[in-house]
Design a protein around this nucleic acid. Structure first.
Length: 492
RNA sequence: CGGGAUGUAGCGUAGCCAGGUCAUCGCGCCACAUUUGGGAUGUGGAGGUCGCAGGUUCGAAUCCUGCCAUCCCGACCA
């Protein structure tokens, strides 16, 4: 384990990249823009999956799996969606290689094996899924259709960053079909609510719920709802989206149902997704210059035990005390690891588990044996206390809960402090440069103004917050009348 | 995809401009010993197609060409 992580204040970007690698979350692969998610990082993702999957199923969704490939003709059926993603599609043109007659042991594409129709590696599965739904939906009795899939998709991005934007990423995508517009909108809003609750309660990241402007809307959607989070460097990160698709895909793929009055109608659709990008949000929201800070609910190891000893005898005596505690914690469903490696000294272990973000560390040495105490250190504040052995299990339970709450509160306070209201474009620009974060400003509602502001400041409208208070004002850029403020930020 | 930079052992690096006893050093790794309450110390040891592929040359980590990957700045980013 190497010493010294770049400090956030010195170079936030380097800090992030180093942390991802040093904490054993992920690394670059041999393929441009694609990453290897390592076991420790994947364990966190698995915990996210488990909880989301539980929440989806509680609301009546079921899982299925659809192909990773989509024929070009299907992909282009919904025109806006196709146009929106066309620039980042990987395309399969052949299905066979052959040995190169000129160079032994080298392979080449077999031109004889050219596909009649190219396949896209799907960047999002609406096309494949709606083409399937056509066969699954005939009657109002088939609705609603509530399906989710855990999958990987490919978007050939120009510039990638581990977890935040990779050419291939893991995600879940829900795709639902409904009989009425109202029901589909309710589904869209329900899923946004699930995402928001999940991100706030599990990742301990406060989010702003809102809707996207036309510019930022999902290609093929009528409305895109989103949750936006704020990272420690003052940039915003879109953490999840839920789209009301209207009847766009139903029309493109001819998905109709017969209603109770025996009349054919187009179905209404939604789609919603969160990805491994949430890992990036998690890392950037809570971690510090010592390494990761993981919320207890997502930490693969919640408690690490470190024995401090001289010689075999002491180790045996200490383990005798630690083992029953470990057992008791396991029975409370607390993930505990006893780090009894004799090949590293305690100081090294402290640093290593801090880097990996383990929420609680307990250390037991001969001093504690004599006093019947144990040292407990919380990762988020690094606060150290020596507590009696007796109530250690309930103490740890309480501590884990407290950490979960505290890191959310800390992030919440930061977020609130980083939402700044401005009423002039001068102030707008100054806040973005000096302070960062969300800038709450009036906007005239036009894409043109949004574009111009982006050109001038790099900031985009992250969302129009839900339940936004109506407030008469003037657009900060054009001076035209505005009914409400929107949130701008420089985004990842 | 445009501009800039980088690529030498698991990690970080020296050497490159001025081609040849040049593959350097630190961390890490292995063995043994002493250690163990905040990243241990000593002794010994292992580990390299110098990103990949061509070229120039008697000779290439070093010069040239192409490619690949990464980082930064743009463009792009539901």
């Amino acid at each position: 384990m190497s010493k010294g992580l770049t400090k956030r204040g010195d170079d936030y970007s380097s800090w992030y990249n180093e942390l991802v690698k040093k904490a054993d979350l992920a690394e670059h692969s041999a393929v441009k823009g694609c990453m290897v998610i390592k076991p420790y990082g994947f364990a966190i993702w698995e915990k996210m999956q488990q909880e989301l999957d539980r929440m989806f199923k509680l609301t009546g969704h079921v899982n299925a799996y659809f192909p990773i490939f989509v024929p070009k003709s299907l992909f282009e059926a919904e025109e806006k969606n196709a146009a929106g993603f066309a620039k980042e599609c990987a395309v399969v043109t052949h299905y066979r290689l052959k040995t190169n007659p000129d160079i032994p042991a080298k392979l080449m594409v077999d031109e004889q094996a050219k596909l009649e129709e190219e396949l896209e590696v799907t960047p999002t599965s609406e096309a494949v899924i709606w083409n399937t739904y056509k066969n699954w939906i005939q009657s109002y009795r088939d609705l609603p259709l509530l399906i989710n899939q855990w999958a990987n998709v490919v978007r050939w991005e120009m510039r990638t960053r581990l977890f935040l934007r990779t050419a291939e990423f893991l995600w879940q995508e829900g795709h639902t079909a409904h009989a009425t517009r109202q029901e589909a909108i309710e589904e869209t809003e329900q899923m946004l609510d699930i995402y928001a609750r999940f991100v706030e309660n599990f990742l301990a990241i406060p989010v702003v719920r809102g809707i996207k402007t036309e510019n930022e809307r999902f290609a093929g959607a009528e409305e895109t709802y989103c949750i936006e989070a704020l990272m420690q460097d003052g940039k915003a990160l879109q953490a999840g989206t839920s789209h009301f698709l209207g009847q766009n895909f139903a029309k493109a793929f001819d998905v109709k149902y017969l209603n109770k009055e025996n009349k054919q109608e187009w179905v209404w659709g939604t789609s919603w997704g969160v990805s491994t990008r949430l890992m990036g949000a998690l890392i950037m929201s809570h971690s510090d210059d010592e390494g990761l800070v993981l919320p207890p609910k997502l930490a693969p190891i919640q408690v690490v035990m470190i024995p401090i000893y001289k010689g075999e005898e002491q180790l045996a005596a200490i383990k005798e005390v630690l083992q029953p505690i470990r057992q008791a914690l396991l029975e409370k469903n607390i993930a505990v690891k006893l780090d009894d490696r004799d090949t590293y000294r305690p100081g090294f272990k402290f640093a290593e588990w801090e880097l990996k973000g383990v929420p609680v560390r307990i250390a037991l040495g001969h001093r504690d044996l004599e006093n019947k105490t144990i040292e407990v250190v919380r990762r988020d504040t690094k606060e150290k206390q020596v507590v009696p052995l007796e109530n250690i299990v309930s103490h740890i339970e309480d501590l884990l809960e407290d950490i979960q709450v505290q890191i959310f509160q800390k992030a919440k306070q930061y977020q609130e402090a980083m939402i700044t209201q401005v009423d002039t474009f001068e102030a707008f620009k100054e806040i973005l440069v000096q302070k960062g974060g969300f800038v709450s400003a009036h906007w005239d509602g036009t894409s043109e103004t949004e574009e111009k502001i982006k050109e001038a400041t790099k900031a985009t409208i992250r969302c129009i917050p839900l339940n936004n208070p109506k407030e008469e004002g003037k657009c900060v850029f054009s001076g035209k009348p505005s009914q409400q403020r929107v949130l701008f930020a420089v985004a990842y």
